[in-house]
Nucleic acid binder design. Structure first.
Length: 453
RNA sequence: CGGGGCGUGGCGCAGCUCGGUAGCGCGCAUCGUUCGGGACGAUGAGGUCGCAGGUUCAAAUCCUGUCGCCCCGACCA
């Protein structure tokens, strides 16, 4: 996987915002090994089954030269194969065993930023790559309640991040058994609807119960003197979020990056015809640049002399820079500048006075309006149906559909077979009881369906 | 693994049916004019047509094999 500088800067901004939220909720970063002994994977039955089909396996440690190049040295075969981590529960819980003896050692609240590998049959740019970058939180607790609380807390961190930073509205819910993380008791998720009407699972938070504690024999002695298995959660978001961001906001001119995550929030494009104008315009532009920089705005002065303004405009729009300032001789003369918004593609001539205040406010406005616009689109793409016929008619046009379901895997599978739609989640917001659209059996609440990525 | 498609200058493609001097657009280089929404002109550099065989006087073009990539399906953050 290659991530070029522009994309990486965006990811770094996402990381920074998430890290801050993790830290505010008491978490610390750590790092665990890339390679996992094969035997670790087999310790939790569900977990192996879930990941067995998509593992990169290291079998040898050496190459040797042969006539036409190099080949794997058969003599270097490993005694035990190593798995390139598809996720780190196993290797982390193997460590936790040594860290935990007493309830006083709990909770352990750790996050890891890492790459993971899942040998996918078919990849899809940003959404399903063989290698991806992510963060995975792995926590250990003395009680069930505390672990569940952690799981839900982190789900809420993800919801907040998606909405407040990415301006991507999400539905929070719990997965059905068939969509659950391998090894989890409950998988909670944030689900977003993309502009094309397909759903994207944007983040997951798992309540792992005592499954990994049992598998890795991680016990602690409680206040009451009893030895007990530790309760766990794990949670993660990945570079898939970059794909989600793109598919939520972009238009025909290119990317639209929300100001709070944009590596460059404001770009200044000077316009001139000759050296004399160039000097005057650049002097003026530098003042504006300085003022914005001092106000903490991520601003860039695009003084490249080998591209014309029109070219730069188009390029910055394609890259999704939230605001553009154009400055030409006219503006220098009138103490003005031209402000263009990426999200609405509108332009205004404004005075230079208080420009940093004006822009700081405008960036916040854009951030807010992007979320509002995405919410509106999302609402337009969300509907609720009474019966299966209505469901089948609607599903082809995409979007989220709320419908009653009897809670069985059979019905879920039948719907998937017939419509390619899956249950994205059972929304936490709840709902009224009713009857399953397929079988007519009782349903506690409507669940969220969609075709998904 | 099943079904489709594609490999021709850096990128995107035409040429292949019907074998006969490798072409177009973009990009790149130099110079000049341009510069408030992806400029224009002139000149120029750059390809043994994925690879290996075969047919032929002659192969990008026909035949055989092979490698690679993309799309659709089964797997999934």
């Amino acid at each position: 996987m290659v991530i070029r500088p522009n994309g990486f800067a965006l990811w770094e901004n996402m990381k920074q915002a998430l890290d801050k939220m993790f830290s505010e909720t008491g978490h610390e970063n750590a790092y665990f090994p890339l390679f996992i002994p094969k035997s670790f994977l087999s310790k939790e039955a569900q977990h192996v089954e879930g990941f067995a089909k998509e593992c990169a396996v290291v079998t040898h440690s050496r190459l040797k030269s042969v006539d036409n190049g190099v080949e794997v040295d058969p003599a270097s075969r490993l005694e035990e194969e190593l798995i390139v981590r598809p996720t780190s529960e196993t290797i982390i819980w193997d460590s936790y065993r040594g860290w935990i003896q007493s309830y006083r050692d709990l909770p352990i609240l750790i996050n890891q930023w890492a790459n993971v590998v899942r040998w996918e049959m078919r990849t899809r740019l940003f959404l399903r790559t063989m290698e991806f970058l992510w963060q995975e939180g792995h926590t250990a607790h003395a009680t069930r309640d505390e672990a569940v609380g952690e799981t839900l807390q982190m789900l809420d961190v993800y919801r907040t991040f998606a909405e407040d930073y990415m301006a991507m509205p999400v539905i929070t819910g719990v997965k059905t058994e068939s969509e659950r993380f391998a090894g989890a008791v409950d998988t909670y998720c944030i689900e977003a609807i993309m502009q094309d009407g397909k759903a994207l699972q944007a983040g997951t938070s798992h309540f792992l119960g005592q499954n990994f504690a049992r598998a890795f024999d991680v016990k602690f002695q409680d206040e009451d003197g009893e030895h007990k298995y530790v309760w766990a959660s794990s949670w993660g978001v990945s570079t898939r979020l970059v794909g989600g961001l793109i598919m939520t906001h972009s238009d025909d001119q290119g990317l639209v990056i929300p100001p709070r995550l944009a590596p460059v929030q404001v770009v200044i494009v000077p316009i001139y015809r000759n050296d004399e104008q160039r000097q005057a315009v650049l002097d003026y532009a530098s003042l504006v640049y300085r003022e914005l920089k001092d106000a903490g705005v991520a601003v860039k002065l695009d003084d490249r002399d080998n591209y014309k303004p029109g070219w730069k405009f188009a390029q910055h729009e394609a890259e999704g820079i939230p605001l553009r300032i154009a400055i030409g001789p006219r503006d220098v003369e009138n103490n003005n500048l031209e402000l263009a918004r990426r999200d609405t593609l509108t332009k205004d001539i404004v005075g230079r006075e208080n420009i940093s205040d004006r822009i700081t406010i405008l960036l916040e406005t854009i951030q807010r309006e992007l979320l509002a616009a995405a919410r509106e689109r999302s609402a337009r793409q969300t509907s609720s149906v009474k019966n299966y016929e209505e469901f089948q008619n609607k599903i082809d046009s995409g979007g989220f559909i709320y419908a009653h379901w009897d809670g069985t895997a059979e019905t879920e599978e039948k719907i998937k077979e017939e419509t390619k739609a899956t249950i994205r989640c059972i929304p936490l917001e709840g709902g009224k009881p009713g009857k399953c659209m397929v079988t007519g059996k009782p349903s506690e609440q409507k669940v969220l369906f969609a075709r998904s990525y």
